[in-house]
Design a protein around this nucleic acid. Structure first.
Lengths: 246, 246
DNA sequence: CTATATTGTGTAATTATTACACATTTGATC
DNA sequence: GATCAAATGTGTAATAATTACACAATATAG
């Protein structure tokens, strides 16, 4: 300990005791998690929002969030909070970014960590404990409570980037999907239009789609073939991409 | 307020009062920032580390970190801490990820936000207040204190990804550089070898390098031409890339 | 002046991307 | 069952990007 103290005074660095006291006393801050849950329905990208119950944000929508407990891993808190708010449990959450301006929350200093997920609206039935929980078309998401608009924008941009580099999109689709559904999904996420023939060519040449020899049912036009994504093949082939492009 | 309380009991949602009390009392957690500062020297990618002063981690190296103050924006804390530890002030810090397992710090619960930067070792003279602050070849970075190895690995992977998509690398080079230096940089960051002719072709075809009509000095072989990066042109042309590739 | 090290340059083959049009199949309607 | 509407399924030519690869020129060091 003597050594530590000497080192500390010589180099202006703290001992474990000092750090412990700082950690335990004056320097603590409330920490929260906010979940941005994306879904896909009616050819539209949606996000799950809850009505804010704070007077300050009366009538405005907000992300699904709550405080992290002191004895709880950050990731575990994210899953707990999502479960609490929606009943959803078997979804994968991914950390996106942390927002920490001093005055972002009216109740005091709260730093929040944003998590994001993509779910299949059909397969994950929401436990709507709260009737103010709703899917919103991302085109109509404006003016969220707190700094949630900024958090949402950040998550959407990250989704747009990641969906182009990884086969995330399939989490948003039914297990069996048509190429049209797949293309609609990409067009909704990326907010763009793509050439149908080139889109098909691209996916067929990747060779990750398994032709199920089944057709769409109940569509009011010629039905398309159904496919599923070959995750095994993708995992094996996962390429280490090296290239410069900006 | 009555309305708020009713809403709260009906929907199991908290009032501002309850939240305020939670934020102020039992649920606070210490928050820190750790900085991963990359540099480039002698054709090697380096990272700035400081010797850990905790007995538990005796002799091991760690990232540059400290606690965030309750009345300080998270980004501001990152700049303050970097300044304090190294004297560096005119560098750009970028948030990478947040690490929050319960037992990651021996002094108690500390959630940490990792920030990353790239600096030119020649141009940014360190204020080495602490003689245990050193540049380490990233090839020799192992067994860091705390969970800093994991944090470092995450930041390095993000750097590898980002340097391929954005002209970040130039922050690590002198203002005037040769194509060989540029290629060495990419090879060091990506840990790979590239074909010299194709590398040149690629950069010339992007057309972001300004030929300074100057030659390298004091090299023990035929000197190469010097270039600088045309940031203005890059900013104007910045493309919205859309494509699927995995 | 010789040796060494590194710069600077071009082409052919392959692969990926883009733009673009028409016949086919189904369900719905009359 | 004929017709319509709406979507599926398919191919090619032009262009652009990537890869693999070898030799002459130039500077410094000795």
């Amino acid at each position: 300990m003597i050594t530590e103290e000497k080192a500390a005074s010589a180099k202006n660095i703290k001992t474990l005791q000092v750090i412990q006291s700082e950690v335990e006393n004056t320097n603590r801050i409330a920490l929260s998690v906010d979940c941005v849950i994306f879904g896909f329905d009616e050819s539209k990208l949606k996000v799950l929002l809850i009505r804010s119950d704070l007077k300050k944000f009366a009538g405005r929508w907000s992300l699904l969030g709550d405080l992290v407990f002191p004895q709880e891993d950050l990731d575990a808190a994210a899953y707990r909070i999502l479960k609490q708010r929606t009943g959803l449990s078997d979804v994968y959450l991914e950390q996106v970014s942390t927002f920490g301006t001093v005055s972002r929350h009216p109740a005091g200093r709260v730093v929040t960590v944003a998590y994001c997920s993509l779910i299949n609206v059909q397969h994950h039935k929401l436990n709507i404990l709260d009737n103010e929980l709703h899917w919103h078309d991302i085109k109509n998401v404006t003016d969220l409570a707190f700094d949630h608009q900024q958090i949402f924008d950040t998550c959407l941009r990250q989704l747009q980037k990641r969906v182009q580099e990884h086969p995330l999109g399939f989490n948003l689709l039914p297990k069996k999907f048509s190429l049209r559904e797949l293309q609609n999904l990409y067009e909704a996420i990326l907010d763009t239009k793509m050439d149908r023939r080139n889109f098909r060519k691209k996916f067929f040449s990747m060779d990750f789609l398994i032709d199920l020899d089944e057709m769409e049912q109940d569509v009011p036009h010629r039905p398309g073939k159904l496919y599923k994504f070959n995750y095994e093949k993708y995992e094996k082939r996962k390429k280490k991409w090296v290239g410069i492009d900006f």
